[in-house]
Amino acid sequence: MNGPVRPITSAELEAHAFLHGLSARFLAELLPHTERREFAAGHTVAREGDPAREFFLIEVGKVALEIVAEGRPHLTVLTLGPGEVFGWSWLVPPHLWRVDARTLKPSRVVVVAGPALRDALEAHPEDGYRFLRRLVPILARRLDATRLQVFDVYRP
């Protein structure tokens, strides 16, 4: 069942919480570079070190971000659910994934091609600014959370 499913419409794209309010022109440019995918539970959506070319918006399901290192057990550092996003390495050189992303449940995601998104953000600075205004708080919250996890707040 892994793979593309029913194409997404511009109305659906606009309705997604993360993209809501961006200009119609901007979203129209993205639409051809956007698709819906469904994954079974346990599917590795992205692998650390692989080229990062896509931005993910979760519609249904649950995705774990994992750190994988040889000789050590996989470590899940964050799980994400409907309405949440992941994958921004397409925006940050050298455009390589820094974690594994793996589904924990059957999941449906909207995938936007990173290079096209980059071009659209460059071409429409106002939309680009709005996009970053949404992305940066998410990055900040995850950074905060990671700090507390490193702090090991419940340690004995």
Partner: peptide, 23 residues
């Protein structure tokens, strides 16, 4: 239920309690 870190045998949530609050 959410934990700070988990292995692959955990199908629950990973993250801070505050990340479970929005919904």
């Amino acid at each position: 239920v959410t934990v700070d870190a988990a292995g692959r045998d955990w199908y629950g949530d990973v993250g801070l309690v505050t990340q479970r609050l929005p919904d």
